[in-house]
Write a protein that binds this DNA or RNA. Structure first.
Lengths: 213, 213, 213, 213
DNA sequence: TCATAAGCGAGACGGTACGTCTTGTCTTCTC
DNA sequence: GAGAAGACAAGACGTACCGTCTCGCTTATGA
């Protein structure tokens, strides 16, 4: 679906001339991920990606305005892999998401790239929006979905004020994603099952108590 | 104290020849922070920093092997500003730290630089160590201190197993720092007093419940 | 014709991509001569030449591997100016060439550059070949032409052995060019008409006597 | 005697403090020649010479103002080796000098260095004087000496006008030195006995004929 | 079927920054 | 005060990428 979204850029219906090669798109994103794995963000160069993809640099710039946008798109698709299966309880659901997210951050192409584009996004509003659309918002959906399940199970109360509900979802998302990212990249310690359990315990306890408030 | 630590690099007791200029060290770090504010991480260039500092590029490279290490040192000193004052309760203490940390992350020189060096550190062990020593470990101390205060106040129980205690401190540190960083840089929303209160509420509730476990 | 020779470098028939700018070639050689006049060999820098030519350094390095080769090409074209007009006698022809060559060596761009590239050529075979092709061989042709005229006039006998003839031409070339260069650059005295007359007298006398041998 | 001349620079009679090390002078000139052999003129650096000589750069700059002057002095001493032995005839004397001079130019340290300093001297009057004093004038003496011998033998007539005599000596010097240098460095052909014989024949014939004029 | 229009590869182009190297000066301590 | 050691300002070096451009060629569409 990310692919859909991205390709929609080319959907201009009235278009003459040779159409853009879909194969090139694929090859470039693939090459980008490969280059990220091998070289990391800072050593990745557009020329190198083009060469790997067997594509001219022009072709690359015709589709992405900069290294940053290319990398966001290349990485975004990975985040679609996270799914929230119903594991029967809020605790189990959160633990599952935490471990999935951690596994994803362990992959070398995300590890470097994610922080790098976030760093760049602090200076580039277009990039920030792209990140939000391509990555953040879709993940935030997982939190909402998880909460709905917990409410259906009776683990969490329904929140009547939609604004409060949204704020809560945001907070929980920042706590989960933030903790996992920080543990993985800044503290540089592994997110194993033990840590996931400890963290989830803390969070669920916090959530439960917050209920009353 | 950071300055001490950094300058210890030059402490070689048997040293002939002209000694390194301490003024240059200072000027370079100052220039680096200024350049970060103006240009951000990715546009910051060694030549520019040297020019701002009124120093030759060689002088700069004699002290720091790369842009990354220079920036870590330049930014590290800022983190010393966070202090944990006794505000009378665990909740107030945490809220204080959260707001201080957020204020620090709002500063343009930290905003970009921090994520960027973290991104680089995923590919560079020496850099990761430098970050840990210069930034992470010192902040982790704040968590320990805050817990001791809470224990003295009777808000938290004493943990007899030192390993468990350490693990807990790490977890709490990742949750606090992670949430603030994620809110600020990834979600790109402000950490205001309201958010700080909500987050602290969640965390303190979680901590309290965890006690029994 | 030098230009032809140089441009032949680009004659590759199967060539895709944007072709090299001929204007850049010209601008660079012009800028090089200007820089030689102003700064001399040792202070001439590639960056400066590029800037004068309104060209990127890369463009310059794409065409010439080093300062030396660039300067040889830039200077070579000047040597095409020497022509041997028929002045009616061997003596007059030689005097003419001597004065033309001296005038050329007086020009600031040749003065420094010629000796400098010769100096470098003692360590660099490719450079030596380039100098030979671009400068030496073409000048040697003048000697041959002058001899033919003298032979036609009956001033010199025809040499039947072509190898001996070639050796003689080489010798005469080294004597003429060597004496003028040495007088101009090493002794640092002017080559005026008087000196030219004395030198020619000596040489013609030597040639006449050599005839019988 | 060159050494004398050079060291006279330090003869200041009223001088307090530690005297300059004579060993350093020797070591530096030796190191310079060694570096010339290995690296050639353009790759020779003052730092490298200092290191080879086991001497600080300061020591080096205290004695020579620049790379050029150092090299002139280092090379000059070599030219003292040429002597003009009485071989019984003008022809033999000239042939001897030509071969000695050629042998000297074949040495790698002179080959590169000589042309290089000459090139620099076209832009630097002080350097030109130093070359003249250290190298040119002393060699010109050889020509005068050779002529005196030839006059004593009756091979050449005495010239009554001293100015004409001086001009002649200069001319002959430029012809001999110029031809050998040009043959060796520009034409890049060897000066063997055959060439020396041919050249000498030409020169002596020219000299003989010039006599009457 | 043939012009028009865009895509595409190749690679040159003007720039900017890189990290290294030299130059000649300076500052410190030791002899 | 000479000398060894080495820091320093200045600036050139040659390389690597950037993002743009200019070629000649290919592949669609629509007149």
């Amino acid at each position: 679906m990310v692919a859909d979204m991205l390709s929609r850029r080319h959907d201009n219906p009235t278009r003459s001339g040779r159409p853009r090669s879909a194969a090139a798109d694929t090859a470039i994103l693939l090459a980008t991920r490969a280059a990220l794995v091998e070289l990391g963000w800072s050593k990745l160069s557009m020329g190198d990606v083009a060469a790997r993809a067997g594509v001219a640099k022009t072709t690359l710039y015709r589709r992405w305005a900069s290294k940053n946008e290319l990398v966001v798109d290349a990485v975004a698709v990975i985040f679609d892999e996270i799914e929230i299966h119903d594991r029967g309880s809020l605790t189990a659901d959160i633990e599952g998401v935490v471990l999935q997210f951690a596994a994803l951050l362990e992959r070398p192409e995300t590890k470097t790239a994610l922080m790098a584009v976030v760093a760049e996004s602090t200076r580039d509003d277009a990039l920030r929006d792209r990140i939000r659309t391509a990555i953040v918002d879709r993940q935030k959906g997982l939190v909402v979905k998880g909460r709905e399940r917990a409410q259906a199970r009776g683990e969490l109360a329904y929140e009547s004020d939609p604004e409060v509900a949204a704020r809560n979802a945001d907070l929980i998302f920042d706590v989960i994603a933030g903790a996992v990212v920080h543990r993985t990249l800044v503290s540089a310690e592994p997110v194993d099952e033990e840590w996931a359990r400890g963290f989830t315990l803390l969070l669920v306890a916090g959530l439960g108590a917050n209920q009353g408030a």
